[in-house]
């Protein structure tokens, strides 16, 4: 299944997806477990700005720090998640919805980030990445010298 990311798609396409999702729910076909954001699948990303810092958050339940790989170059954040759920041999699965596998995602951030000060925290399946903006990307107040 191809990886698709919502949020930046055409609103009409989003509406259609939403209708598909609602209808499929009605008809009793639960959405399958794939890395599709928006349907409570993982890993979708939320990103916001907090003063001089950019914050990114992902839902990665059941993932250990060793299965995560985060790197920053300039204004580009690369996230790698490897979520393996080993199937147990000889058992019958009544349902398999939890997404599994590895994925890579590259986010172009709106500002350059100071790679040395990036921090990541993993708690209860939520990964929070703190990305302080690089000095050059911070807004600077320019003093105006009045020639009097």
């Amino acid at each position: 299944m191809p990886l698709r990311y919502r949020g930046l798609r055409h609103p009409a396409a989003q509406l259609r997806d939403e209708m598909d999702r609602l209808l499929s729910g009605f008809l009793g076909h639960p959405s399958e477990g794939s890395w599709t954001p928006g349907s409570r699948g993982q890993p979708a990303v939320n990103l916001w700005e907090q003063g001089d810092t950019l914050m990114a958050e992902l839902e990665v339940p059941g993932v250990t720090p060793e299965q995560l790989d985060i790197s920053v170059v300039g204004g580009e954040l690369t996230l790698r998640v490897d979520r393996q759920i080993p199937a147990e041999e000889g058992l019958s699965y009544h349902r398999r919805e939890r997404p599994t596998g590895s994925f890579t995602r590259v986010l172009r951030l709106p500002a350059d980030v100071d790679g040395n000060r990036v921090q990541a925290e993993l708690k209860d399946g939520i990964l929070t990445i703190t990305l302080p903006k690089a000095e050059g990307a911070k807004p600077r107040k320019i003093e105006i010298a009045s020639a009097s």
């Binding site: 930046l8 699948g41 990103l47 759920i85």
Partner: peptide
Amino acid sequence: TTKKAAERPESAERTRGGQFFRPNCDIVE
């Protein structure tokens, strides 16, 4: 990512007067 606020997905289903999400589940016998 752009500076304008992104659209928020509306993926919660309304049940019992509140907003709930349906967690992905595996059921193994």
